[in-house]
Every structure is written in C-alpha cells, then in structure tokens.
C-alpha cells in the first residue's frame, strides 16, 4: 500500500513537471504562432526577446529589489524593443517572403547574442524566486515548489486570457478575421496594420514575460535564446503555425514527451522530440492543427 502511494505521488510530481515545462513553452510559442498566423511572419528573434526578458528582469530585480516589479516592467521593455524592431525591420519585411524573414531574424539572434555578452558578460546569472514563492506547497501527498505552481498558473491564466480575447471580444473577432483572410478584413474596414502592430507587441511582451518567469528556474545565459529556439519552433510547427490551439497542444505534447522520456527511456530522451517532430511532419506536413484550411 505504501509503495502504491509512493508510486502515485511520483507520477503526480512528474505530471506537474511536464505541465510546468509545457506552460513555459506555451508562453513562448503562443506569441510566435499568433504573429505568424496574423502577419505571416516567422520571427526567429522571438527567442532573443525571451533572453532579453530574462536579463532585463534580473537587472530590474536588482534595481527595484522586487521580483514582481521585474515581472511587470521587463516584458514592457521587451515590448518596446519589439516595437522598435517592428518599425525598423519587421514592417519592411512583411512582403519579403518567409526565407528572407527567417534570415534577417536569424541575423538578429547573432546581434542580440553579442549585445547581451557585452552588456552582462559571459557568466550565467541567477534570479531568486520571490520570497512568497520560494518554498514548497504540500497537497495530494506531495511537496511541490510554489514557484513552479505559479508558472503553471501564469501559463493557464495567459491561455485563458488569450482564449477569451480571441473568442469573446471584438478585437479578437478582428484578429480571427484577419488571420482567415487579410484582404477581406481590410475591406471590411479593419485597420489591419494597426492590428498587426498591436499583436506583434503583445507577442514580444509574452516572450519577455516568459524570460523573466523562467529566470528563477533556468537562470540567464547568453545561449538561452538559441537553446530555447529549437523546442519552441518544434512546438509551433507540430501544433501548426498560426494556430492558438496548436500552440497549446504542441506545448503539452513536448512538455510531456520531454519529462516522461527522461523518466521512462533516458537513453533516448535526447532523440525523442526530434523523432516526434519528424514523424508529425511526415504524417501531417502542416502540423497537427493547420491554421488555415
């Protein structure tokens, strides 16, 4: 009986681990996928914004002495950087074709990588979780770090908020209409370019938010952008570029595959996500949930 209880709590813990990783991936991939859905733009520099979020968050936390201020301000700063990028590069590249977009934003990754090295150095930096969330919470017979529960909650809130905005508000209806058919939406009197800008900024802010939120667990390193880029792209591509449901589904799949791969078949865990990505694309070349028919 004791053993069974041990086992159950072990699996509950692992499910929470998977869920927490999935939520972090979701925060990152949702911005990427919505920007693609709406602007038809593949923004690889999204990963750099995530990195900037973490570094700015750490500096802000040191400056204000509070994690919460960092969590609030850093995404706004990242949003500002995103807005700057939009006016200088992104708007200009809207019609340049996906290949050129991939290349320019890939170039941006290099630029941001060295800018961060110059600004913050090569040594990895840590950020302490806020005191209120630094302990563990006891429930269902297990102890789980409160901060990780907070991330699950944060991801869930963003998920619910996104769904609400897209499904229940006027602006959501406008976004959906524009994803479906940009020309038609413009003909109906929607200011498409303003809508694009708004969505792009929100996506960037979410990347920054993910960066700050991840810093207490994963710390900030100069390579964190490039490292997270691959799993994020995998999530987005598996789910189907441009689809909110796809980002949710993709995040959960990768989160659970990663954690349960590590638990059940550790020798193959490094291969699993790639194998899954290849399999999904061969089976469904446009991802599990294609954004457009």
């Amino acid at each position: 009986m004791q053993n069974v209880a041990m086992d159950v709590s072990f699996w509950i813990l692992q499910c929470l681990n998977a869920l927490q990783y999935a939520m972090l991936l979701f925060l990152l991939s949702v911005g990427l996928t919505v920007i693609f859905g709406l602007l038809n733009f593949v923004n690889l520099a999204h990963a750099s914004l995530y990195m900037l979020g973490a570094y700015l968050g750490i500096s802000l936390a040191a400056l204000t002495g509070s994690f919460w201020w960092a969590l609030l301000i850093a995404p706004l700063l990242v949003m500002g950087i995103g807005a700057g990028l939009y006016f200088t590069l992104i708007a200009r590249l809207r019609t340049a074709g996906p290949m050129n977009q991939v290349l320019v934003t890939f170039g941006l990754i290099f630029v941001f990588l060295d800018l961060v090295r110059i600004g913050w150095g090569d040594i990895a930096l840590g950020l302490a979780a806020p005191p209120a969330l630094s302990g563990t919470l006891h429930f269902l017979g297990i102890n789980y770090p409160s901060y990780r529960l907070f991330i699950i909650g944060l991801g869930g809130t963003v998920m619910a908020g996104m769904w609400f905005i897209l499904a229940r508000t006027q602006i959501g209806a406008m976004i959906r209409a524009s994803v479906e058919n940009t020309d038609m939406a413009a003909a109906l009197g929607i200011d498409v370019s303003r809508l694009f800008f708004l969505v792009f900024c929100c996506g960037c802010a979410l990347a920054g938010l993910a960066g700050v939120a991840a810093a207490p667990i994963l710390s900030a390193t100069t390579t964190m952008g490039i490292t997270i880029l691959i799993p994020t792209m995998i999530v987005v591509v598996i789910g189907g570029l441009g689809s909110l449901e796809g980002a949710i589904l993709g995040s959960l799949i990768i989160g659970f595959i990663d954690v349960f791969g590590a638990v059940l078949m550790p020798s193959f865990s490094a291969l699993l996500t790639y194998a899954l990505l290849a399999a999904v694309l061969v089976w469904r070349p446009h991802g599990l949930i294609a954004a457009r028919g």
Partner: peptide
C-alpha cells in the same frame, strides 16, 4: 520522407533529421 513538405515546415523537418544524426554521433 520530406517530399511533401515545403517552406518553413521543410526547414524544421530537415533540422529534426540533422539533429537526430548529431545526437547519435554525440552519444
């Protein structure tokens, strides 16, 4: 295997195969 895949999906699919090969030789 990727004959039906195009665009960014093709890029990602080739990335996946390449990384699988990398992981195998790394280990």
């Amino acid at each position: 295997v990727t004959a039906r895949i195009s665009g960014i999906f093709f890029i990602m699919a080739t990335l996946a195969f390449g990384q699988m090969a990398y992981t195998i030789f790394f280990r």
